[in-house]
């Protein structure tokens, strides 16, 4: 008996599990790239090869550039606060003893709830006249924005919901990373005269950096694919202010049946993701120290 697998074993253990992956991932990926080079509209039986036209059109299309812009803003403004808050909460929670688990439970709860259902709830919380958010802001005499119906605030409302849902997830990852840091390192730094700020900056942050990188990638991929909350809270509006690349893809493909242009958008999202993946490999070389 040796570890070298024979054909029958490979068939059972490798080929069969790969069938769904090939049918629903690899083949569709290839077809998508092909479709993005055509002008298919889903209804007509025929279509033509149009080369890079779809891509060139996109680059000259204001809606696309706006969506790219929105995607960038949405990604940065969800990923960074999620990581920073998740880290801060984890550090604070790490000091507690008996109550830690309970509080972690509260903070993580949003992650398990369905985005669709909770977005419906949030859409009412953001309601300018009867929603609790503006009522509370009003109590303190703060400005009461129109949130979802104002193109300057709508994206921030979507961002708030996204961060709210993801921060507990990041917190749990960081909590886990923190418990794995040997306690002696902080004592050693203490003995050497490092203050709290120095210990956080010079020991804690570098030591959780592999986890930060991991979360950064996962959260960025999630942000690039955000759909549910946008679809319910704003449907890309008002006046396109929350239309991200993915939402644009959805509109082009499943509302306007402009399959060629729509798939071109996803191929671009794919390229952005692949670029990020590549970047993360390079960064992880720099960060991994043990």
């Amino acid at each position: 008996m040796d570890k070298q697998a024979n054909f029958k074993q490979l068939f059972v253990f490798v080929l069969i599990p790969l069938i769904p992956l090939v049918i629903f991932w690899i083949i569709p990926l290839i077809i998508s790239v092909w479709l993005s080079l055509t002008n298919w509209d889903y209804i007509s039986p025929t279509y033509e090869y149009v080369g890079l036209d779809n891509y060139l059109n996109l680059i000259n299309n204001d809606a696309f550039l706006d969506a790219l812009n929105n995607t960038l803003l949405f990604t940065v403004a969800t990923v960074i606060p999620t990581i920073v808050l998740g880290f801060v909460f984890a550090v604070m929670l790490n000091q507690l003893r008996k109550t830690k688990g309970f509080l972690q439970g509260l903070m993580f709860a949003p992650w398990i709830t369905p985005m669709v259902g909770m977005s419906i709830v949030w859409s009412w919380m953001f309601n300018p006249s009867v929603g609790p958010i503006n009522q509370v802001l009003g109590l303190f005499g703060l400005p009461e924005p129109n949130w979802l119906s104002d193109s300057s605030t709508a994206i921030w409302a979507v961002i708030i919901v996204t961060v709210w849902k993801g921060v507990g997830w990041a917190m749990l990852f960081f909590s886990d990373a923190l418990t794995k840091i040997p306690k002696g390192l902080f004592e050693a730094a203490d003995v050497e005269g490092a203050g709290l700020g120095q210990r956080i900056r010079m020991i804690l942050i570098p030591l959780v950096s592999p986890m930060t990188l991991f979360l950064f990638i996962i959260l960025t991929l999630d942000a690039l694919q955000a759909y549910d909350q946008i679809s319910i809270l704003t449907q890309g509006g008002p006046s396109g202010s929350t239309r991200t690349l993915l939402y644009l893809y959805y509109e082009m493909t499943f509302q306007q049946f402009n399959i060629g242009a729509g798939t071109a958008v996803t191929v671009l999202i794919l390229i952005i993701s692949a670029f990020l993946a590549f970047l993360s490999m390079i960064l992880s070389k720099k960060f991994v120290f043990y």
């Binding site: 992956l21 049918i23 629903f24 991932w25 690899i26 083949i27 569709p28 990926l29 077809i31 998508s32 479709l35 990638i217 991929l221 690039l224 694919q225 759909y227 993915l246 893809y249 959805y250 493909t253 399959i259 729509g262 798939t263 996803t266 191929v267 999202i269 794919l270 993701s273 692949a274 990020l276 993946a277």
Partner: peptide
């Protein structure tokens, strides 16, 4: 290869998967 597919957005596969 499997690792790479994890990185890719699911939306890329929607139209072809729909047809399939």
């Amino acid at each position: 290869i499997i690792l790479a597919t994890y990185m890719l957005p699911a939306a890329t596969t929607y139209v072809p998967s729909y047809i399939i």
